[in-house]
Simulated assay, not measured.
Amino acid sequence: MIDIGLTHIALSVSDIEQSIAFYSTYASMQVVHRRLDAETGVSVVWLCDRTRPFVVVLIEIASVHPILSPLAHLGVGCKSREDMERLCQIARHEGRLLSEPKDSGYPIGYWAFLRDPDGHTLELSYGQEIGLKLES
Rank of each mutant, 00 (worst) to 15 (best):
I2G: 07
I2Y: 02
G5V: 01
H8K: 11
H8Q: 13
A10W: 00
L11C: 03
S14R: 10
S14D: 07
Q18S: 14
S19D: 10
I20P: 00
Y23I: 13
A27F: 05
M29A: 08
Q30N: 10
Q30C: 09
H33A: 12
L36W: 00
D37V: 12
D37C: 03
G41L: 10
V42Q: 10
L47Q: 07
C48F: 02
R52A: 10
P53N: 14
V56A: 13
V56D: 07
I59V: 14
P66Q: 09
P66N: 06
I67R: 14
I67W: 02
L68W: 06
S69W: 03
P70M: 02
P70S: 08
A72P: 06
L74I: 15
G75I: 05
G75S: 15
K79E: 15
D83Q: 13
R86M: 08
R86F: 08
C88H: 02
C88Q: 04
Q89W: 00
Q89N: 14
Q89G: 14
E94N: 15
R96E: 02
L98V: 11
S99M: 14
E100I: 05
P101V: 04
K102Y: 05
D103K: 06
G105Q: 09
P107N: 06
P107E: 06
F113S: 03
R115F: 00
R115P: 00
R115D: 08
D116P: 10
H120W: 05
T121A: 10
E123S: 07
E123M: 08
S125D: 12
S125H: 13
Y126G: 02
G127A: 14
G127I: 09
Q128C: 13
E129N: 13
G131P: 00
L132S: 13
L132R: 12
K133C: 06
E135V: 03
S136W: 00
